[in-house]
Design a protein around this nucleic acid. Structure first.
Lengths: 224, 224
DNA sequence: AGTGGTCTTGTCCGCGCGGCCAACACTGCC
DNA sequence: GGCAGTGTTGGCCGCGCGGACAAGACCACT
């Protein structure tokens, strides 16, 4: 049924499918057979690429983390400091936040996931601290301890994402508003400085760029 | 094996066991047989009390929410406004936060859980807004919009709880410090006003008080 | 003492799971 | 043109699951 594929491409394809299903069903409920059906192959083939289910989901999450970091790095360059900060604080869009929330709940009982999550959070904090520092250097904000402020804002962004994505208590506009106002106040920025920057159009789905081979990796459609 | 029990007590016992297992294994992985073993009965008996697995976990979560609200109400009365605020903002302790985080990840695909979560969040926000209002009335803080401030602080508390409980990136002291400083600044309180209040000793485990019958419901031990 | 009700047990069923593996198909090398 | 090597298939296995149910144990009431 499925045509023979370059191993690297097939691997990427499986990882992308796994991520899509994790976002939909959660880590615990994704089965090898689900992934195989999503890719369009037999479940035995999945095991040809990943020895166990655990390794599969861990690899998928790791790919997501790497993709996220790469996307952050892309945003970092080419944006003015204030716009970069606004963009970072409003990363909220995209269904992949559900993967993150699911990872939080799995982390206490999955060491690999926990390690990836820790690394990601540390890197994100460091990145945000850098963005804050640049805003401060540009004279648009004040921060005695960018690292501490980054930690606080990361927590706020995560908590707001929960209220928006998981519970649906607030919409995206309000989510951004809450975070922006808190950041402006905390960093002593001009009120509205963040809100006024146009949020960059949200790129495609998290990670799974053509990576090495340049092959068009299948990516989740809104309806798929 | 298990002695015949008052139905209400047995029900509470099953719910408490379910909550314990959900905290340990997550909603998706708790099985009827797990719960039965935890209680010390046969898995058929669980189905005598709860028609389906879904109803069981939903009921367990609902009980947790009610218990939480009751505990919040207990705290509310009998504490000075500033101390009450500090207590609320530092609810972080206790393993039951893992249940909350897990509920966030399950909510998008479990309507009952989603409803319970929404209700709980709304009630919590309203409660916190009331606490803030009382602090303001007492002249210890300023808030133009207690409801909005409550929403922001709730998000911050949740995000900090993730960093502390799920990822272990920060310890409890730092979690409290982050939230307290942000609240003091945002509500224009005297710096350190919140940190200086002694946190109330954390009560027993979440909810599962003897409720009606006054029966000593089995409760998780740290080592169990 | 008998009776009805229900708490409790033990066992059975079909299903889907992760994992395993022998056979097939395709490709590139000699 | 044969011959590895490996991507791919499809079916098998044992297990634990949620669910179902008949029978037993115990209690309350008459």
């Amino acid at each position: 049924m499925a045509t023979r594929l370059d191993p690297a491409q097939r691997r990427e394809q499986i990882l992308a499918a796994t991520l899509r299903l994790v976002a939909r069903d959660g880590f615990a409920r994704v089965t090898l057979r689900d992934v195989a059906a999503e890719v369009g192959v037999v479940h035995g083939l999945i095991r040809h690429y990943f020895a166990t289910r655990e390794q599969l989901v861990a690899a998928a999450f790791d790919a997501a983390v790497l993709g996220e970091l790469r996307a952050d790095a892309e945003v970092e360059e080419g944006l003015e400091p204030v716009a970069a900060l606004a963009d970072w604080l409003s990363t909220t869009p995209r269904g992949h936040y559900l993967v993150w929330i699911d990872a939080w709940s799995e982390a206490p009982r999955n060491p690999e996931l926990h390690a990836a999550l820790t690394r990601h959070h540390r890197d994100s904090d460091r990145h945000l601290a850098g963005v804050i520092q640049r805003v401060v250097d540009a004279g648009h904000a004040t921060s005695a301890d960018p690292a501490a402020d980054a930690r606080m804002l990361t927590a706020l962004v995560d908590g707001v994402a929960v209220q928006h994505h998981a519970i649906g208590l607030i919409d995206e506009a309000e989510a951004d508003r809450i975070v922006f106002r808190a950041a402006e106040e905390h960093l002593k920025m001009q009120p509205g400085a963040l809100s006024r920057t146009r949020p960059t159009p949200t790129r495609g789905l998290w990670a799974t760029p053509p990576a090495a081979a340049g092959a068009p990796v299948a990516v989740a459609e809104p309806g798929d």
